[in-house]
Nucleic acid binder design. Sequence first.
DNA 1: AAGTAACCGAGACGGTACGTCTCGTCTTGCG
DNA 2: CGCAAGACGAGACGTACCGTCTCGGTTACTT
Lengths: 192, 192, 192, 192
Amino acid sequence: MSPAPNPELRNATSHQAILDATFELAVSKGYGKLTIEAIAAKAGVGKQTIYRWWPSKGAIALEAINDQIGSATDFPDTGDIAADLKTQVTALSRMFAGDVGCVYRGVIAEAQHDPKLMQNVRDTFVEPRQTNATRRLETAIRAGQIRDDLSPLVMTNLIYGPVYLRFLLGVGDVLDAPNLVDHVLDGLRPRT
Amino acid sequence: MSPAPNPELRNATSHQAILDATFELAVSKGYGKLTIEAIAAKAGVGKQTIYRWWPSKGAIALEAINDQIGSATDFPDTGDIAADLKTQVTALSRMFAGDVGCVYRGVIAEAQHDPKLMQNVRDTFVEPRQTNATRRLETAIRAGQIRDDLSPLVMTNLIYGPVYLRFLLGVGDVLDAPNLVDHVLDGLRPRT
Amino acid sequence: MSPAPNPELRNATSHQAILDATFELAVSKGYGKLTIEAIAAKAGVGKQTIYRWWPSKGAIALEAINDQIGSATDFPDTGDIAADLKTQVTALSRMFAGDVGCVYRGVIAEAQHDPKLMQNVRDTFVEPRQTNATRRLETAIRAGQIRDDLSPLVMTNLIYGPVYLRFLLGVGDVLDAPNLVDHVLDGLRPRT
Amino acid sequence: MSPAPNPELRNATSHQAILDATFELAVSKGYGKLTIEAIAAKAGVGKQTIYRWWPSKGAIALEAINDQIGSATDFPDTGDIAADLKTQVTALSRMFAGDVGCVYRGVIAEAQHDPKLMQNVRDTFVEPRQTNATRRLETAIRAGQIRDDLSPLVMTNLIYGPVYLRFLLGVGDVLDAPNLVDHVLDGLRPRT
DNA sequence: AAGTAACCGAGACGGTACGTCTCGTCTTGCG
DNA sequence: CGCAAGACGAGACGTACCGTCTCGGTTACTT
């Protein structure tokens, strides 16, 4: 069926040029007006080169985001779970409020009718952060800082839910989201 | 700017036919493959009639949703805040998991690069439910069922955040979302 | 079938306003960009009023032309057939080169795929002039100024053919057309 | 301005299919109901491929005509100018009365409000025939068959004027046009 | 060193849908 | 009932992108 291109022969310069062009165009024109043709033109690349290596616009944008952010939203561990959570959520909210957020918003939008992209988003963006959070929460549980009768995975839902709500629905200000963390933690305190 | 059509001369039959065609097509073909042309054809309507009254595909779909759901996600008041919240969140989750959810998902996607549509979503869908929730929570606060040192609006963020997270990111199962309510309420119990 | 409107109830003011608007728009915007909607708007008239009384855009324009030109291309009779022909052809060429020509050109264009309009053009514009020419030529034949073994109708074809050729195909200059009359008359001199 | 497509990359099959579809549709439905969309559909071609290579519907139709007629209206030279002229005008009249005439009529109509198309008509259709006629007339002049004090170009106007008059205004029958040639030639006989 | 196979830039292609325009009909309310 | 106003169903317009498809040119591995 598909000729299955050989990844070893892939042109690294074009690869990076496509990611850069995608990110820049998504930010400047808005994700909604991002087109494969524009990316190809800006990157100085043939369209086929894009279609050869990516299945969709969203996949490029997602890779461009991950290429862009690096370790900006890593999870700290100072021993104080409340402070660490707040630090991480603050970093995430700042990112959501910035250029990366614009692009990420578009990727999530596209993923609503592209299950593979959605899976890709979860695999490369959401889960790594959730895993880090889960690990940190387990440490806190062992330290007795938070209750032990609740799955850490559920806890991450309670924590990140409001952040995404503000990000994706524009309910309230994303930058205020970190303040919600305290209230969530109230519910996660050890049972007396 | 636009010649501003006279709403009194609007053809009610066409209006409804457009909403019905939109909803049906969005469900059967998927929101991503919904086109104005298909809506017009299915509704037996000229394209201009659509463009005359709606600014975008998303606006039609949003109106179609609101036209469709009626009072399915109303807020009950049995006196038991926990039960009432769970009832409402359950109804909402069921809706998200059904046909309306498919369409709503597409609307929110489109709203990511259309601020007016996003505002419209908040005004006609999110806020009415949030207001009802807020009102119910205030009753519960006065009844001493939940803490009084937290804005009800913030509370709704904590409650609905995880629901939307599951709905829009596919994290976990939307139908499990109601179970999260208990844990959120834990954090909202009156301070001792 | 058609309700057959009563011509006696026709609004004379609207009638004239439509003709004037049509002529002015055809001249200023060009016949090709003339629309019924623009005519109605400019004339301050409902579209239905136009459709009620005219079968097509070309019919309005033709009537507008005939309303406009009056007796500008009447046929003189000084006794000198050569001079008279030249006078008339000169007047016609001048008209073709002016505003009326622009509109007439468009009417003839439209008449190419509208046989009724074409018949209308011949009946109200071409034939009256041809009849006048025929009559004048008959006088000249009787006066022995031109040959008598050729139908006057054929003669008018020989005379006006080159004029229309220049007008409709832009071959040479329309305003030079009168000079061709002399050469045509050469062929129409009495047989020796 | 336009990105100026590279003619070397042009697809010859599509090119011919478009000309064929245009001619056939113009004849069967009538030039007035000819649409770019129908041409594209019938030719099995994207609309953009048409817009890429032709500036207007009329330009396609003109090319289709020229592609169609080949040498059908070539000018003979038997030594007898009267016979040769009649032969050619007869061929032209027959063409005007047939399918090509239907299309050509529409092209001329469109050219009335499209100066570039009109120029194109003259350049590719009218002038080649006029040039041939001019050349043949010059031979006849040198042979003393017709007068030498009149520009051959003016002569062609006198000859073809009546033909086009009958063709474009429907005055008389186009197929009778050849009979007019004799009378025109009367006026072109050498001055005695 | 020549041959060859893959990727590359470029861009034409068959399509689909866009949002606009104009058509000719239909509806409403005024005079 | 004629009229001004204008909404309506219909459908073509010319544009923008889609994803596929040749084209030569270049590069990197064979042999």
